[in-house]
Design a binder for these strands. Structure first.
Length: 304
DNA sequence: GGAATAACCTGGATGC
DNA sequence: TGCATCCAGGTTATTC
C-alpha cells in the first residue's frame, strides 16, 4: 500500500537510473495500466519512444518523469505514475523475464549506466501510467520532491503539497481543517488538503496525536492541529528513514526489497494487541470503506 | 459547493 | 479438495 514514504523510496531509487536516459522502446502488456492516459497503448508507446528523461519528481503519491521537449528543449510533458495499492516500479537488466503482473516495460539507455529495463507491475491494477502536460505551479515553487522546475503534471495539479514539502503552508492546512465538518481522518486522507497520507499513516498520526479518528475536524483546537501536523511529519520522516512499510510482497523498492517501518507501527494492523502507551487493546472499526485502528483509551471518542 | 458513498480490481485468507 | 465470500484501500465519479 504505497503512501508517501514508499513512493519516495521508489523515486529516490529510480532517479539515478533514469535521469538523462533515453527511452529506446515501450511495451504495453495491459492497457488497464493506462487508465489515466488520454490515448491507447499504441499512442502511449509512440509518444514515449525516443524521449529523454530529465528528472524524477514526486508530489504526495504521484511520481513523474519530465520528458525533454523537441530538440532537447524544456520539458512540456511528463510520464506520470501512480502506484495505486499494489503498483511496483522495478529496475531490471535488459531482456529480463516478464514479471508477474507486469503491465508496462520501458527499455532505456543511460549515458553512464547503459541499458536498463523499467518495469511497471501491478497486481490489483489500481495504479497507472500516463503521459501528461506539465503546467506551472500557482506558487512558483518547485512542483515536488526531486525537481527544481516549477511545474507539475496537469492531473496532479489538484493534489496538495505533502507535509514534508518545503513549500507546504501550515497556515493553509490549519485553515482547511478549521473549515471541514467531517471526521479528521477523512481530512487527512483528502489529498487536496495534504497529500501522501494513506490509511496506515493516518491511523499512526492520529494515535501519536491522541486524536480519535472520528473527531470533527473543525472542532479541534489549533494546538491539537499543530500537534497532529507535527506527528504526521515525524511519522513520515521515520517511515522514510526505514524504507517504508511493507506487510506483504506488494510494496518493494526498485530492487524488489521491502521496508522495515511495519515493525514500528503502534496502531495500524494491531487489533487486539496492547496499546504501546497505555496497554489497553487497540480496536479496529469500519470507517468509510476502510479500517480504522486506534486506542479508545488514549484517543477519546468525540462527544455525541 | 461540500460531504458521503460506491465502484474499480486481484489474490490471499477464511468458512463451509 | 473445491467453491464462495470477504477483505485490503487510493482515487474518482456519482449521489445526496
Amino acid at each position: 500500500m504505497p503512501e508517501l514514504p514508499e513512493v519516495e523510496v521508489v523515486r529516490a531509487g529510480l532517479a539515478p537510473a533514469v535521469t538523462g536516459a533515453t527511452v529506446l522502446g515501450v511495451s504495453v502488456l495491459d492497457e488497464r495500466a493506462l487508465t489515466r492516459h488520454s490515448g491507447d497503448g499504441l499512442h502511449f508507446e509512440a509518444a514515449l519512444t525516443g524521449r529523454r528523461i530529465v528528472d524524477a519528481a514526486r508530489r504526495g503519491k504521484f511520481l513523474w518523469l519530465p520528458l525533454a521537449g523537441a530538440s532537447g528543449g524544456e520539458p512540456g510533458e511528463a510520464l506520470v505514475a501512480h502506484l495505486g495499492m499494489s503498483g511496483q516500479i522495478l529496475l531490471r537488466e535488459p531482456g529480463a523475464p516478464v514479471e508477474r503482473h507486469e503491465r508496462v516495460r520501458l527499455d532505456i539507455q543511460h549515458p553512464e549506466h547503459g541499458d536498463l529495463s523499467v518495469v511497471f507491475a501491478d497486481q490489483r491494477t489500481f495504479g497507472s501510467l500516463a503521459i501528461d502536460a506539465l503546467i506551472p505551479t500557482p506558487d512558483a515553487a518547485p512542483g515536488g520532491w526531486g525537481t527544481t522546475a516549477a511545474s507539475v503534471p496537469a492531473q496532479v495539479a489538484h493534489i496538495a503539497r505533502d507535509a514534508l514539502d518545503p513549500a507546504f503552508r501550515d497556515a493553509d492546512f490549519r485553515a482547511a481543517v478549521a473549515r471541514k465538518d467531517s471526521a479528521i481522518k477523512r481530512v487527512l486522507l483528502d489529498q487536496s488538503v495534504v497529500s501522501g497520507v494513506g490509511n496506515i499513516y493516518a491511523d499512526e498520526s492520529l494515535w501519536a496525536a491522541r486524536i480519535h479518528p472520528e473527531s470533527t475536524a473543525k472542532s479541534l483546537s489549533t494546538r491539537a492541529v499543530n500537534r497532529l501536523l507535527a506527528d504526521v511529519r515525524a511519522i513520515l520522516e521515520k517511515a522514510l528513514a526505514e524504507g517504508g512499510t511493507s506487510f506483504d510482497a506488494q510494496y518493494v523498492n526498485v530492487n524488489g526489497q521491502s521496508g522495515y517501518f511495519s515493525h514500528s507501527l503502534n496502531a495500524y494492523g494491531r487489533t487486539g494487541q496492547p496499546c504501546p502507551r497505555c496497554g489497553r487493546p487497540i480496536v479496529r472499526v469500519s470507517f468509510t470503506n476502510r479500517s480504522s485502528h486506534f486506542c479508545p483509551h488514549c484517543q477519546k471518542a468525540p462527544k455525541a
